[in-house]
Amino acid sequence: MLVKELMSQDVIAIDPEITMEEAQRLMNVNSIGRLVVVEDEKVIGIITDGDLVQQNDLNISIKELMTHEVISVFEDDTVQEVARILSDNGIGGVPVLNKEEQLVGIVTAEDIVSGYVKQEEGKAKLSPESSAIYLAMTRSREYENYWLDKIRGYNYKVAITQTGANAENLPIKLRESMTVAAIARGVIKENFKEKMAVSNAVKDAYTQLNLVNPGLGGGFKVSIVRGRGRVAVAVFGKFGHALVDGPEQLAVGMSVI
């Protein structure tokens, strides 16, 4: 799958002279977490909601706080290549350029996750990754049982649990609860190698979530599916704190086993 198949084409580009207050309003109105800064039809910077949180003076211009060394990708890059770029650089989204290096879109970690589902459409057999996503996103016991039966029908091993914690303990809680559930449901054996595979898959998913909402705890539904020589973990739920609850987030991690 190529980036141009799942990127957002309605990217909001801004002038470097607009104020932080205007940038914040644009993010709030459009429910987005980043804006691309363009000058003379060239991408010169990027600003995120995380930058706004750290800035008290909202009257300063974007150019004083934006990230100047912008990491971008091309529309014909593969989803796998972009996922690696996001993970390696600890970022949640990047501008997408065409061959003429003109801005044509933006792709985020959320788009990458949805790409896993889209890539499976029309295929006769579910992958462990898409199976874990569908199961984690179930909202009723009836629908959950439907997906459990469907996934087991492919001879995959599966488990599901729920967990939540503050920011400091969340990655540990996710790993511990998923490992316990996986052992209890026979997804893995209680040995170092298989427990490490689960730990790596959870870490992969948590890294994606933390890129979008760094420093926040939350509550999540977590699923694990084992099949085709790997384990896939999907994490679905909300980040938030005492004052505000964030939007629902979804991430998937994988590890060879």
Rank of each mutant, 00 (worst) to 15 (best):
D111W: 03
I46H: 05
G237F: 07
V96N: 00
E176Y: 03
G237E: 06
A232G: 04
A132W: 04
F220E: 02
I44H: 05
M137L: 10
S130Q: 09
D10M: 09
E190W: 10
Y146C: 00
A242G: 13
K238R: 15
A181Y: 04
N210P: 08
L243A: 14
P214Y: 06
N191E: 12
K150I: 07
L52Q: 02
V158S: 02
D204W: 07
D77S: 11
I133R: 02
S127I: 02
A132K: 02
E81W: 06
I133E: 06
M27N: 00
K203E: 15
V117G: 06
T48N: 00
K157W: 09
M178S: 09
T19K: 04
L86K: 01
L26T: 06
K173T: 08
K99G: 10
V212R: 12
Y143I: 13
G115C: 03
E39C: 05
D15V: 05
S130R: 11
E17M: 13
K221N: 12
S8M: 10
L103E: 04
G92H: 01
L250D: 05
T19V: 05
G253V: 00
N56G: 13
K4Y: 13
V233L: 07
E22Q: 15
I60F: 11
S72N: 10
D204I: 03
I91K: 05
V29H: 12
E248S: 13
V187G: 01
N56M: 14
P128Q: 05
L211P: 00
N59G: 15
V113E: 07
V53Q: 13
M254C: 13
I133V: 13
E142H: 05
L26K: 11
L243R: 12
V158D: 01
L174T: 01
K195S: 14
Q102R: 15
V3T: 00
N30L: 06
H68N: 13
R152P: 02
P16I: 01
A242P: 06
V222I: 14
Y154K: 06
E129F: 04
A205M: 10
K42F: 10
G115H: 01
E81N: 11
A242T: 14
L6Y: 09
